[in-house]
Structures are given as C-alpha cells and as structure tokens.
C-alpha cells in the first residue's frame, strides 16, 4: 500500500492503463501542458507525449464527440471534463451518441470510452458550477456511472472503467482530490463495477452514501455511536450498475435506511435507492426511508447558504434518530 492523494490514485490508474494499452489516450481541456486543471494528469504529458495526452480548445461538444468517434473506430479514449458542469455543453454526445451507438447499430460497434472529471458542489461556486450529475447520467441506458469516495476505490474503479467496452461516466470531486489515504499498489488492481463497499458495520440503521457524502455518513456514524447506535455505512461506489443487493441485505438486518446524496432531491440517486429498497425489502422496514439531500434549489454562493445547501452529519444524525424512533 502507498499513501496517495485521490488525484494521485487516479493518475496512477490512468498511467498504469496507458502503459498497458497503447490504444488509450487522455484528451481534454488543460490536461497536457497545464498538467490538468486540478493536476490529476500532472506529468502525464511528459511520460506519454502529446500524441496520447492531448489538450483541446474549450469545445466540449467537439471533443466529447471526437472521443465517441475514436471509440467507434478502435481506440479507448479517456475524455476529461474540467468539471462535469461543462459536460452539459457536450451533453448530446455523452447521452445521445455514446450510449446509443452500440444499440442502434445492432451491436456492431463497441464504445470503450471514459468521461471523467469532478462532479458536484465544491465550495462557493454558485449555481452553474455545482451540479451533481450522477442521477442525470444514470438515467441513460447504455451509460455506466461510477462515483468513488476514497483514493483506493478511485484507482481500482478507474482502471476497471478504462477496461470497460461501454461508456463510463467517472465522477470525481474537486474537494476530495487532496484526500490522502492508503492505495493498493497491487499489479492489475481493479474493482468490479456494481460492487458496494461496507465501510462500517452496524446493526441499528443503514446509511448509504457515495462520493463526498460517504464521509458525511462516516462522521454521522461516529456521532450515533456516541449515542449508542451502530450505523452500517455502505458506499455503493458505482451508481450504475447499483449494488442493490448489498443495500437490501443491510436493510434486512437493520430495518431502517437513510440515504445521503448531495444531488437535488427530485429523481435523485437517493430516490432510486429508496424505491428499490421498498420494492425489495418492504416487509423489513420498521420506519420510512429518509433522505438527506441538497434542497430543491440551485446552489447558492453565500457561505451560510452553501452550508445549508450541503448535506451534513448533524442532519444525517437527526434523520437516523428519527428512523430509530429515538428522538
């Protein structure tokens, strides 16, 4: 194991894969000469040269489409969006071309492409730069959506994503790029998509949370433990495919569920998990399923408003106590 920042773990994943397979290339805004807007690709230009680490103009629609075309014609692009807020400019390529070409060609074309970059709110960036896109992209059949919360998962899942023959949306976080943790150095370290991680075991209440919210969940679990309740914390790691079995298994044990999702609430990942759990484990629920999400408003700027916007550990604890009937 090595202690790496999240960005370094992601870089290690890309570097190892690009060393393994010449068909993989990285393309995006500022990925090469600038060393990456968030330094994820730092040094990769030096290692792989400008043929494989390619700067683009500010042209998301163009370079997202370039990636899709290259994937149709035998390459394995990693397309970096500086943030996923900008993926909306190239939305058509991400949602209408990448996931559909295989299907509408009757399976004649592969689509081994990764769209990656930071997702979700990252401080006081206001409404247009704080979008959480995971529910949105999960709504498109043909796409896979990955959203890790710790560096080790970041590495293992990104390596898997790059090896997928299907388009993968790989969602990172500006606020987590500096997060340091143990990362496997095992050769060929991959984590399968659709496999959740039980980060903390407990028998009283299940908390499901991905990405940054996972850390909120861990904080809340600590606070609950002080009150005498043991929370089980599950990080689904991939949103699509979703490891619903792991979540259901936990709910069958704890009989109560709180989902944290920093997305806006309507038709969110939290909504989907809630639906599936009531479908699969209705008779095991001893309380309604509660969610902790952003409110249904655009992200604000003012610091106090932004604090109110983001899901927090206190709110999570409160909701856990509610489903525990322990208020």
């Amino acid at each position: 194991m090595a202690t790496l920042q999240f960005r370094e773990a992601l870089r290690a994943a890309m570097t190892e894969e690009m060393e393994r397979d010449d068909d993989i290339f990285l393309i995006g805004e500022e990925v090469a000469e600038y060393d990456g807007a968030y330094k994820v690709s730092k040094g990769m230009l030096d290692q792989f040269g400008p043929q494989r680490v390619i700067d683009t103009p500010i042209s998301e629609l163009g370079f997202a489409g370039l990636g899709v075309g290259a994937a149709m014609n035998g390459l394995r692009p990693i397309v970096e969006f500086m943030t996923f807020n900008f993926s909306y400019v190239g939305f058509d390529q991400v949602v209408n071309n990448a996931p559909n070409v295989r299907y509408m060609s009757g399976g004649q074309f592969e689509m081994p492409i990764v769209f990656r970059g930071p997702n979700g709110a990252a401080g006081q960036l206001a409404a247009t730069h704080s979008n959480s896109t995971e529910a949105l992209y999960s709504n498109f059949p043909g796409l896979k959506v990955v959203s890790p919360s710790i560096p080790d998962d970041g590495k293992g899942l990104l390596k898997t994503a790059i090896r997928e023959d299907d388009p993968v949306i790989f969602l990172e976080s500006e606020l987590m790029y500096g997060l340091k943790d143990e990362v496997s150095e095992e050769a060929d370290y991959t984590i399968p998509l659709g496999s959740a991680r039980v980060a903390r075991e407990g028998s009283d209440v299940t908390i499901v949370a991905h990405s940054k919210s996972h850390h909120v969940a861990m904080d809340a679990a600590e606070q609950l433990a002080e009150k005498g309740y043991e929370a089980e914390v599950i990080d689904p790691r991939t949103i699509k495919p979703l490891d619903i079995d792991a979540i259901v298994e936990s709910v069958v044990k704890t009989n109560r569920l709180v989902v944290i999702d920093e997305s806006n609430p309507f038709a969110s990942v939290a909504s989907e998990i809630t639906h599936r759990v009531q479908d699969r484990a209705f008779d095991y629920l001893d309380a309604p399923i509660l969610r902790v999400t952003a409110p249904d408003v655009p992200a604000p700027y003012a610091p106090n408003l932004m604090d109110a916007y983001m899901p927090g550990a206190d709110e999570t604890v409160d909701k856990c106590l509610r489903v525990l009937y322990a208020e």
Binding site: F25, Q51, L61, G62, F63, A64, G65, L66, G67, V68, G69, A70, A71, M72, N73, G74, L75, P77, D92, Q93, N96, N97, V101, M104, S105, F109
Partner: peptide
C-alpha cells in the same frame, strides 16, 4: 459508421474516427 439522427451531432464523431486512423 452510421446513419445518425440528430442534425449535426455526428460531425464531431467524424473527427474521432479520423483521429483514430491517424493515431
């Protein structure tokens, strides 16, 4: 390489197809 339905949306794909040949 298709047969694409959204007006203009396939034009960026051509750059990728050509890019792959060059690559």
């Amino acid at each position: 390489m298709g047969g694409h339905g959204i007006v203009g949306a396939h034009i960026p794909l051509s750059t990728g197809i050509a890019f792959a040949e060059k690559y």
